[in-house]
Every structure is written in C-alpha cells, then in structure tokens.
Simulated scan of single mutants.
Amino acid sequence: MKYQIEMQYKITGNRKVLFTSDWLDAEMALLTGEQLEKSGKATDLSFIDEMNSSWSLKELRKLSAEIEEEPHDIKIYFDGGFNKDTSEAGLGAIIYYKQGKKNFRLRANELIEQMDTNNEAEYAALYFALNLLQDLGVHHLPVEIKGDSQVVLKQLEGEWPCFEDNLNRWLDRIEGKMKQLGIEPLYEALPRKENKEADRLATQALEGTIINSTIEIN
C-alpha cells in the first residue's frame, strides 16, 4: 500500500501552508511522518492511502504492523489458453506479494471444460487468480492486475462495451469477487512477450500438467 502525506506547515508569523507529498510506501511514509512530527513545524498530519482512506500517524503505525504480517503489495499476471477442438481452457496465474519482510511468488494453473472462446478463457483465468487471492487471505487492498488481453482489461475498465452474454456473466463474477474482497484493481495491459510465464502455465494446463507452488524470491 502507498500513502500520500497531507499536513499543515508552519511558516513565519504562525501562518500555515498545506502540503501534500508524493506517493510513498508505508515504511517511508511512517519515517517521514515521524520526522515531520518531531520537527514541530508540521501539524494536522494525515496519511491518505490508495483507496482514499485517511489515517493518523498513530493509526498508520498500528495498521502497518498488522498489514506486514498479511499478504500485501499484490501483483497478478493472468492468461487463458483455449482449445477449440475440446472446448477446454487452460488458466494460468502468477501472484507476486510481500508478507513480513519476505517476497513470494505463487504460480498456479487449472484446466476447465465447456468454454466457448479464447476471450472467455481469459476471463476465467482472471477469476481463477482472484480465487487464489481469496485463499491467501488478501482483502481491502489495491491489486495490480496485468495481462495481455485488451478485451478483458478494457471491458473491466468500462472503456469497451461487452455484448456477449457469457462474457457479461464473467464480468459480473469478477466484479462481485472484487467487491467481496474489497479489492481496488489497477489494470495494466502488457505486450504478449511480457506475459510469457502466465501463458506457459495456461499451456501446461491444456497439456495436462497442473501446477500450484509458492516460493520465496529475492
């Protein structure tokens, strides 16, 4: 989670000027806030997070201690593969996250049946990734969602209309899951070559190789 610091800064004549900082990670926001408080020049310190919630310095200390032990700084990569001969879809998802002082990567895939199109497979892959987040206990956090399907990302952002009933059902499922988890999505469309790992997982699922592994990374 990132934060902006808002404060009133005292200048000559006991006048005050409102300042807002750049976006800072929790550790830097806390360090900066504590130093500003010690200086005696800053008043009305508040910390605004990416979900537009406001925290005092004391509240942010407590919140950061709690979040540190839960998965946070979440990035999802997803991809779906489709076999039109069998109507099967391979779903691939990678989740990068921090917990404690460590970084982790979860890689997983799944094979599902009765799919109609590659676009439906892409939607199913993102829904699969969101279920993995739920299993991790992720809630009420911003989540970066990265994929190479312009259709999925643009329709989720509301920039492109969706006319297919089956895709609208997936849209409803995904938006419902995000609401349930309190997730604030940050979408990013990737060139296909930057999503190779998720694509490989989707292909492996279609080939019958199922993977679900989590490792610590540097």
Rank of each mutant, 00 (worst) to 15 (best):
Met1Lys: 07
Met1Thr: 10
Gln4Phe: 09
Ile5Pro: 03
Met7Ile: 05
Met7Ala: 15
Met7Ser: 10
Arg15Pro: 02
Arg15Leu: 14
Lys16Trp: 10
Val17Ile: 15
Leu18Ile: 08
Thr20Gly: 07
Asp22Ala: 14
Asp22Glu: 15
Asp22Phe: 09
Glu27Tyr: 08
Thr32Gln: 12
Gln35Asn: 14
Gln35Thr: 14
Glu37Trp: 10
Ser39Ile: 01
Phe47Leu: 13
Ile48Gly: 00
Asp49Tyr: 01
Glu50Asn: 03
Glu50Tyr: 04
Met51Arg: 14
Met51Pro: 00
Ser53Gln: 15
Leu57Tyr: 05
Lys58Leu: 11
Leu60Val: 01
Leu60Thr: 00
Ser64Ala: 11
Ala65Val: 08
Ala65Ser: 14
Glu68Leu: 10
Glu68Val: 00
Pro71Ser: 08
Tyr77Ile: 03
Gly81Met: 05
Asn83Phe: 03
Asn83Ser: 12
Glu88Pro: 06
Leu91Ile: 10
Leu91Lys: 03
Gly92Leu: 04
Ile94Met: 13
Ile94Tyr: 04
Ile95Ala: 02
Tyr96Gly: 02
Phe104Gln: 06
Arg107His: 09
Ala108His: 01
Glu110His: 12
Asp116Gly: 12
Asn119Arg: 07
Glu120Pro: 00
Tyr123Ser: 01
Tyr123Asn: 01
Ala125Arg: 04
Phe128Trp: 04
Phe128Ala: 04
Phe128Leu: 05
Ala129Arg: 05
Ala129Ser: 11
Leu133Gln: 06
His139Gln: 13
Leu141Phe: 00
Pro142Phe: 00
Val143Asp: 07
Val143Ala: 02
Ile145Arg: 01
Gly147Gln: 03
Asp148Glu: 07
Ser149Gln: 06
Leu153His: 06
Lys154Trp: 02
Lys154Arg: 13
Gly158Gln: 05
Gly158Met: 06
Pro161Leu: 11
Glu164Tyr: 09
Asp165Met: 08
Asp165Gln: 14
Asp165Tyr: 09
Asn166Tyr: 10
Leu167His: 06
Leu167Gly: 07
Trp170Phe: 13
Leu171Asp: 05
Leu171Gly: 01
Asp172Met: 13
Asp172Glu: 14
Arg173Ser: 09
Ile174Phe: 02
Glu175Gln: 15
Gly176Asp: 07
Met178Leu: 14
Leu181Tyr: 11
Ile183Phe: 02
Glu184Ile: 12
Leu186Asn: 09
Leu186Pro: 00
Glu188Lys: 14
Arg192Asn: 03
Glu194Val: 05
Glu194Ile: 05
Lys196Arg: 15
Leu201Met: 04
Leu201Phe: 02
Leu201Ser: 02
Leu201Val: 01
Ala202Asp: 10
Ala205Cys: 08
Glu207Ser: 13
Gly208Ile: 08
Asn212Asp: 11
Asn212Leu: 11
Asn212Glu: 12
Ile215Val: 15
Ile215Phe: 04
Glu216Phe: 09
Asn218Ser: 15
Asn218Trp: 11
